[in-house]
């Protein structure tokens, strides 16, 4: 289909071809990049190096760290809590297709200018602005055993579906994942809306003239044009699902019931600051970085797979 190949051409490769035009002014090019690179080198890369170095040491934060080789990583392999937490994080990763689809669909819906779209756009952003403290308190009340949700289920005769949502080992993790998706879909909507606003309308219109159906256009034109944005969102949620959800989980369930919603970032925080095992915590961080990168790489490859 012509439309799809047209969309595909707006890729990084063409950008490069164009770039050749400026290749004569080598220094200017680097000047664009340099400020960001310097800042990143000093404030991110150097600390990352420090953290990686610490991962091979035993350090309590008081005396000097001493090198212990791979010992932290060996311990990590035997660490039941870490492995359990990691499994919970992987369960969150499994939910990622929903996490992409929901904001994508909502953004497309808003983009159609459905009645009240400005209102919806604002309202869908509200959960993002709510602090984890509020979410914890709010869902603690809504999902309580005798709370409004179970009350509603019972009043419509679905009492059988009423559960202890936040105290059932089998249910709590899915419930928490649901809340997390709900609490963050506004960010995704925002990003996808920006992507849709950037659509090359000419290609879409060309497809319409060609008589393509709405679904065909969605699948063959919009999706491919939005692919860089989708890829971006995928990478961001993979990273966030490993590194940024502890506050939410902490206020919602305190990691419970039992250890059912413990996550690696919680494990990391408590190893580093509660127990003061800074070397071990760094090792956890390094392993997480590895897992995150592998997961991201896998998902991006999957997204791009159909393209070729």
């Amino acid at each position: 289909m012509t439309a799809s190949s047209g969309a595909g051409s707006v890729g990084p490769r063409t950008g490069r071809r164009h770039g050749a035009r400026h290749s004569g002014r080598g220094l200017t090019r680097w000047l664009f990049l340099l400020p960001a690179l310097v800042l990143l080198a000093v404030l991110i890369v150097y600390p990352i190096g420090d953290a990686i170095r610490l991962a091979f040491t035993s350090w309590d934060g008081f005396s000097a760290p001493h090198s212990i080789g791979l010992s932290n990583f060996e311990d990590l392999l035997k660490d039941k809590r870490f492995k359990e937490s990691l499994l919970h994080n992987l369960a969150i990763v499994v939910a990622i297709p929903i996490w992409i689809a929901v904001p994508y669909a909502v953004a497309c819906g808003i983009h159609t200018k459905v009645a009240g779209w400005r209102f919806f756009r604002l309202v869908f952003f509200l959960p993002v602005v709510l602090s984890p403290v509020v979410l914890g308190a709010y869902y603690g009340i809504v999902l309580a055993e005798s709370g409004p949700l179970n009350g509603a289920l019972r009043s419509v005769g679905l009492g059988g579906l009423a559960h202890e949502w936040l105290n059932d080992p089998a249910l709590t993790l899915p419930v928490v994942i649901g809340i997390i998706i709900w609490a963050t879909f506004g960010v995704g909507v925002l990003i996808f809306l920006a992507g849709l606003a950037n659509l090359d309308e000419e290609i879409v219109e060309a497809a319409q003239v060609d008589g393509a159906s709405r679904w065909q256009i969605q699948r063959h034109v919009v999706f491919w044009q939005l692919l860089p944005v989708i890829e971006f969102w995928t990478v961001i949620i993979v990273i966030a699902s490993f590194t940024a959800f502890f506050p939410l989980i902490y206020t919602l369930t305190k990691g419970g019931p039992g250890t059912a919603t413990f996550t690696v970032d919680f494990d990391l925080y408590s190893e580093a600051f509660t127990s003061g095992r800074l070397g071990y915590a760094s090792a956890i961080g390094v392993v997480m970085m590895f897992i995150i990168l592998v997961t991201c790489g896998g998902l991006v490859a999957l997204l791009r797979w159909r393209r070729s």
Partner: peptide
């Protein structure tokens, strides 16, 4: 109790024991 037992393992594990799950 050490911090990690006090704030982590003990409340988490006992929650399940008290509910008869472990």
């Amino acid at each position: 109790l050490q911090a990690a037992v006090n704030f982590g393992t003990m409340p988490a594990e006992m929650n399940q024991v008290l509910q008869g799950r472990t």
